[in-house]
Design a protein around this nucleic acid. Sequence first.
DNA 1: TTCATATAGATGCAATTGCATCGACAAGGA
DNA 2: TCCTTGTCGATGCAATTGCATCTATATGAA
Lengths: 151, 151
Amino acid sequence: MTKKSPSPEAIAAWARLVRVSRQLVERTEDALKANGLPPLAWYDVLHELAEAGEGGLRPFELTDRVLLAQYSVSRLLARLEVDGLIEKLPVSDDGRGQTVRITASGREMRRRIWAIYGASIAERLGDRLSVQDLKTLASLLGRLRDPPTSA
Amino acid sequence: MTKKSPSPEAIAAWARLVRVSRQLVERTEDALKANGLPPLAWYDVLHELAEAGEGGLRPFELTDRVLLAQYSVSRLLARLEVDGLIEKLPVSDDGRGQTVRITASGREMRRRIWAIYGASIAERLGDRLSVQDLKTLASLLGRLRDPPTSA
DNA sequence: TTCATATAGATGCAATTGCATCGACAAGGA
DNA sequence: TCCTTGTCGATGCAATTGCATCTATATGAA
């Protein structure tokens, strides 16, 4: 097994990708914090739950969607529940599980976060790249996604 | 002050950017861990110090370069020192500070990390995008960097 | 000098994360 | 039915992080 060496262009692209995305996320987190709002992860979960509608989602489905560790989701949901942003319902056909549903306050919180989050995206991406460039960027990034797990 | 709303293309690009970069970094961290190697942050510091040469760097210079919080760098350096990968030297013209220099073991560790890190970059970027596409990607990302602090 | 302010780096403490594992239930073969 | 194995979700504990602050030295005005 021979280890491969990356091209200078690959290294440069990697460095940019990692640094820029970290900066963008951090600045956005800062903006949320500055407005007394919770972290982006909360938005992600509330967003998925809002999309899921009345049926809600099982925690393990959420775990797939938000790319977090199982225990992270478990704890995040516990915090969201304490804050009344979600509710956990027992699920009839599987005694181990539960269904998680967004509450009215949860939807409200999602809106409030989006006001900042969306503005940050508009400012940091929308204002800097043309629609065409945004599409190109998304397309290039799309080719870097992991191949769906082979198993 | 009116909050801006991002275009669908900006949202899509943002989502891709955040998810893809997270995945790439996580998989790379996993690969390092699987080989019994320390996290990427260690590489970043060792890399900067290797580039800096014999003169070494002051911790605050390092803090600028690696985009970490001051206390993170302080603690990271403490761990690197315990492992003998760096050494701290008093600096003559500023009694508060110190100079940090990479050791031989530090260079060796840097090489070992790079064997995995570089391979990961080659595999995840180099093999998936042409040189031209890598350049395009880097260029688009470059336009998303923060404007140098206005102050 | 003397004092006020600023900068370098470290650290106590609380919150968060990661790892490993647990308890509970499910599914399916013997 | 019983037993083994697998999945769902929670959690104890150790390590790491974030925040605020501390000590020590530098800098510059008065």
